[in-house]
Each structure stands twice: as structure tokens, then as C-alpha cells.
Design a protein around this nucleic acid. Structure first.
Lengths: 358, 358
DNA sequence: TTGAAAGCGCTAACAA
DNA sequence: TTGTTAGCGCTTTCAA
């Protein structure tokens, strides 16, 4: 199992190792004749290259690290998928890390990625304040971009959607369907997205004069189970909200489930909305009205920012892409059902960019 | 942004680079006094190590590559999650690759992983025969274990569940609920698991004298949409099967959806089963009876086999773990519904191991 | 227990 | 266009 080295290829082709390197990488001009000889020798020997040695020499690994709070969460899964596809198109490779909502695990991952000399790090930090030191330390050494969520007090690149705009879309839509009161189910406020979504909810309900109550703001975690339990609490009261706004689709699916279990009709008695537009959101009965994030675009921007930062750009960029509202049955708008192409989506374009590199 | 090297730590601590290396890795004995000095120097300088240089020297990267046909498929997602957790516990890192059901993409990934000197490769090949050359080539250079599916004609390690046993569990259960006829919806037969599941279906229906028909065997792809369309075809005929056995949960969820759309009661009119026990299987209405694969165990065995192979074990191991049947409402057994702990699961133990290393 | 020195496989100056 | 040479940062003999 001894690996073939460039020296053996050089010997076989009767040229120097430098020439082999040039011929194979195509970085510098090489005569056709020699290129043929080198290619033949490499093929015959089954030469496959040693990226490690190359990386050490070039101080560049063509490798990106990605850290997410939970691989199993469908939203992050599709973000990972998008990032992987972008990298794969560039011949780069993805180190995938799951922080499991644990800042110490997250810190370990960041350290390890730094030691592995990744060219960049893409992270959805698991906590809005406790993740800050590790994120800052990593960002000081390596280009780093935060995705979706971001920690407080740092000045790194960030890409996500405009959570405020999302809440405006959702609540105006609900208001338009006649809802005049709303509850909000979310995770505890440990990160920026979660905080912004709640702030947006408060702002928009107030603006639209929709009624809410302090005990209609239920904070737990991003999971189906929490959505179910929180909704059960809401349904246990005589005063029911006309709408339940959920901070992600998992919570919303749990809410749908709880309503079904309690014989509450959706959207007849209560309208329900989600956030993220995971694949299963379209499949449930009733299909879920939700916010779609332009994941591919988010991934592409993130990778682009990494490249820019690697070239020594100065100012950090905050890119908020436009979310889009996907109307389905759970808000009674008679929207489409099932997994068909979602033609009602508005084209998600760039929404605002607060600052950019030169 | 210049990285600190071991030489700078050595200078600051007043020792040689060799000593720093020994002190930091803990591989060889170092006096307490010097260890203290080195640790202090490293901390003050913010030394973080260069895994690339270390890897080149040790010819070991503490890195594993994983190639799956589709990151977004919840079954593979959870396999990825399990593998990542096992590796993370060992301080190793995962290169995640999505072959997107494309053998040429897959081949590119395998080449790239080999060039990156990964310590091992874990792969669910996307095709039973067309993936063979690339898998064999990779396996010749690097420890490789196939997960879930495996290609024809190679002799590499493999870990998965016993698909035949799964079909026995499913069909005996269906027979027990009174079903005497069954249809089968699956992907086209491009890989081993798919083939084995169909073979198992044929064998068990015959053994149990359950009626089936050639046009009740519908082969498309592993997706909700295909399950839905295939079921719609079945429901268009006057002769309805009493059960539909689906080769994965996505297909089964599509089948449930089609039945609902056509006003066919599940499990009253037709029983439906899935395969994989993805998280959403428990959430649908009716909740899905399915086969649970011991994912963590599969992941752990795969990583263990990689280590064994790296130490130069000879014979390839084929480890088939025992699947377990999870009974829920879609087969009318009044099983539990919703996402509660699945107490009816039998403990998945080792089922058979056809050969093992010395 | 510590240090000196070689070298992992590759690429980038520099020369020719 | 090609070859020579140095060296990326680390670990590991080998000697002391």
C-alpha cells in the first residue's frame, strides 16, 4: 500500500519533479511532448497526488469547515447540502462538524478546524453570547462567516435572511386572512435569529393592532415535541389566539399535530405558520404556510465571502437576503397542497447589504 | 495573520522544537519543569499547531471521508450524524461528500479523498454495478467500508442491516394483521439494498401465500413524490392490494399522502409500511409502521472496521445487524402515535457476521 | 530527558 | 521551457 510519489513519476517520465508538478497542475507551461510523457507515467503508476504535502507547501488546503448546531435539523441539513454543492463545484472539500448545541463542543471543533488549516470556516453559532469567545478566536486566525445566526459583539461576515422582514410578511399575511390575535412559539432566546424573530413578532403585532398576551409567548427549543407541548398549553386556555406564529417549521409541525390531537381545526379555528420551508412542510395536512430562505444563495454568498476575506478584504459584510412567503393551507388561504413546485414564491433577491468590501 | 510555529514556542521556552513537540503531544516523557515552560509559552503565543505538517510527517490525517448518495435524504443524514459523533469522540474529522446519485461525481469524490490522504472512507455507493470500478480503486489504496448498500463484485468491508430479515418482519406482521395481498414500491434496482428488499418481498409473500401481481411491483426512486405517484397508479385499479410495502419511509409517506388524497383509509382499506424509521415517520397521521435500523451501531462498526483495516487486517468483514420492527398506526395495530419513545422496539443486536478479521 | 538533524512530498524561486 | 534547490512545520530517529 505504498503510495506513488511525484519523484517516481518524474523518474519514469525522465524529467524533474518540478516539471511533473507543473505538467500535472497545469499551473505553468509545459511542452506537449513532456506533458504526454508525464501523463502517461502518472497513469501507468496510478499516481494520485498528495494533497497534504501540497497543502503544506502552498499553505492552502482547498478545504472549508462548517459547524452547525444540529446536523439532523432539516434546515441545517439543507444548508450543509448547499454549501457542499458549491464547494464541490470548485474542487474543494467540506469538513462537517456538529456542535450539538454545546458551546464547548463547538469550541473544540473551531480549534480543530484552525489546526487543520482550513481555508475558511462557516458557522451557525449555537449560542448568541457564550459562543462569542471561540468564534472571535477562530475569526482572528481564519476567514470566518456566520450563517443564519450570529454571535453578539463580533465583527465577522454574516449571511442570512432579514428576520424582521419575514415577520412582516407573515403577520401581514395573517392579518390579511382576518386574524386579529396571535401567539408565538419559539426557542429560548439564545441566539440572534431567535431574538430578531421575537422582536419582529412584537413589532408587527403592535403595528397591525393584533392582540397578543405575555403568556402567548412560549419559549422552549426548536423541536417538534416543544411545538406540540407549547400548543397544548395554549389550547388548554379558554382564550384562544387566532394564529400561532412558530419560529421554525419543526415547532409548527408539532403545533399542527397538537391541534389535530385536540380536535382544533387548522386553519378554521387557528392559523399556523412556520419558518424555513423544510421539505416536509409541504407534505403535512394541512400543508404549512412558512417562510422560505434562499439556501443556495446563502451558501453561495458565504463561500464567496470566504474567498474575499482570504484575499485580504477589510470591512466585514453583513448580507441579509430577502425571505419569501410561501402560502399554503395552514393559514386557510387555499394555497396549494403537497410537494408540487412552489410557484407562488416570489423571487428571492438581495434585500439589503449593510456594508461590503471594496 | 501569520501563524505561530513550534519553533517560536521553542525559542520562547528556551528548548528545542523536538522537546516542544514531545511536551505538547505528550507522546514522550518530558520533565515537569520544561512541560510547564512549554505550556506557558504556547499559551502566551496562542500556538495552535499545524495538523497538515503533522499529517505529512506521520502519514496519518485523523480524517475520514464519507460519501452518500444524498445528504438531504433523512436516512443518510442520520447516518452522517452518527458517524460524525463517533469521529468527534476520537478527535477526528469528517469530510462529507454528496454524490448526488451520480457515479462520476462519486468517482471524483473518491479520488479527491484518496489524494487528501484520509485514513479511511465510508461510502454508500450510489449504484450497484456502475460504482464498482471507483470503489475498487479507492479500496485498493485506502481502508474502505461500505454502508447500507454495497457494490457488486468487490470484497471490501460492509456494514448494514439484514434486508431479508426486515422483509420477513414486515410481511409476517402484515400477515398477522390479516393482510393476504401486497404491493411493493421501491426505487429502480440499482443497488444491493434495493435488490435484496425486493427479493425478500417476493420470498416472503410466496412463503406466506400472500397474493401479489407483477404490476404491483413499482420501481422508481426513493422520494415522497414517487411514492405518491406510484400509489395513485395502484389506487386507479379496481383490484386493490391489502397492503403496500414501501422500500423506504419517503416512499411510504408519499403513499400515505396519495391514499389520503384519494379518500382511501389507512389502515382500514390499505395497510402501509416504510423502511428506515426516519424521525418524521412517527409524526404523520397515521404514524408509519416501519423498520428501524440501528444507525449508531452501524456507524460505530464502520469506524471500527476502518481502524482494523488500517492495522492491516486481512479478510473483509460483512456485518449485518438486526433490524427491528416498529409498529404504528399505518398497519392498524393500534400502535403508538407521535414522537414518543419507541418502547416496542426490540433491542437491535448483532444478527450475523459472515466473516471477520483475525 | 534533551537536542541536532533528517526528511515526509510537494511547489516556488531562481537559474539556465 | 526545464532543472536545481530550498523549505513549508512537524515528528522522529539517533546521539549525547
Amino acid at each position: 500500500m505504498h503510495r506513488i510519489t511525484i519523484a517516481q513519476v518524474a523518474a519514469k517520465a525522465g524529467v524533474s519533479t518540478a516539471t511533473v508538478s507543473r505538467a500535472l497542475s497545469g499551473a505553468r507551461p509545459v511542452s506537449d511532448e513532456i506533458r504526454r510523457r508525464v501523463d502517461a507515467a502518472a497513469r501507468e503508476l496510478g499516481y494520485s497526488g498528495n494533497t497534504i504535502a501540497s497543502a503544506l507547501r502552498r499553505s492552502r488546503t482547498d478545504t472549508v469547515g462548517m459547524v452547525v448546531p444540529s446536523i439532523a435539523n432539516p434546515f441545517f441539513t439543507s444548508l450543509v447540502e448547499s454549501v457542499e454543492h458549491v464547494l464541490q463545484a470548485e474542487g474543494r472539500q467540506l469538513f462537517l462538524c456538529d456542535s450539538r448545541q454545546d458551546t464547548s463542543v463547538e469550541e473544540g471543533h473551531l480549534r480543530s478546524l484552525a489546526a487543520r488549516q482550513v481555508d475558511g470556516i462557516i458557522i451557525s453559532p449555537c449560542h448568541g453570547t457564550r459562543s462569542t469567545p471561540a468564534v472571535e478566536a477562530a475569526a482572528a486566525a481564519i476567514p470566518l462567516v456566520q450563517l443564519d445566526r450570529h454571535v453578539a459583539g463580533t465583527n465577522t461576515d454574516w449571511v442570512g435572511v432579514d428576520d424582521h422582514e419575514s415577520m412582516r410578511l407573515l403577520l401581514e399575511h395573517l392579518h390579511g386572512t382576518g386574524a386579529r390575535s396571535a401567539a408565538f412559539i419559539s426557542s429560548t432566546l439564545t441566539n440572534s435569529s431567535t431574538e430578531l424573530r421575537l422582536a419582529g413578532f412584537r413589532l408587527q403585532t403592535q403595528r397591525l393592532a393584533m392582540r397578543t398576551r405575555p403568556d402567548w409567548i412560549l419559549l422552549g427549543e426548536y423541536s417538534v415535541d416543544w411545538g406540540r407541548r407549547a400548543t397544548a398549553v395554549l389550547l388548554g386556555d379558554a382564550d384562544l389566539p387566532e394564529a400561532i406564529v412558530c419560529a421554525d417549521d419543526l415547532i409548527a409541525l408539532g403545533a399542527l399535530r397538537a391541534c389535530r390531537d385536540h380536535g382544533v381545526d387548522v386553519p378554521g379555528d387557528i392559523r399556523i405558520t412556520g419558518y424555513d420551508d423544510i421539505d416536509f412542510a409541504a407534505l403535512f395536512e394541512p400543508a404549512l404556510t412558512t417562510i422560505s430562505q434562499p439556501r443556495d444563495r446563502i451558501a453561495a454568498e458565504a463561500v464567496r465571502l470566504l474567498a474575499t476575506a482570504a484575499q485580504g478584504g477589510a470591512a466585514a459584510a453583513h448580507i441579509a437576503l430577502a425571505p419569501s412567503l410561501v402560502v399554503r393551507q395552514s393559514t386557510g388561504a387555499g394555497g396549494q397542497t403537497g410537494p408540487q413546485p412552489m410557484s407562488s414564491r416570489s423571487e428571492p433577491g438581495e434585500h439589503q447589504e449593510s456594508s461590503s468590501r471594496p
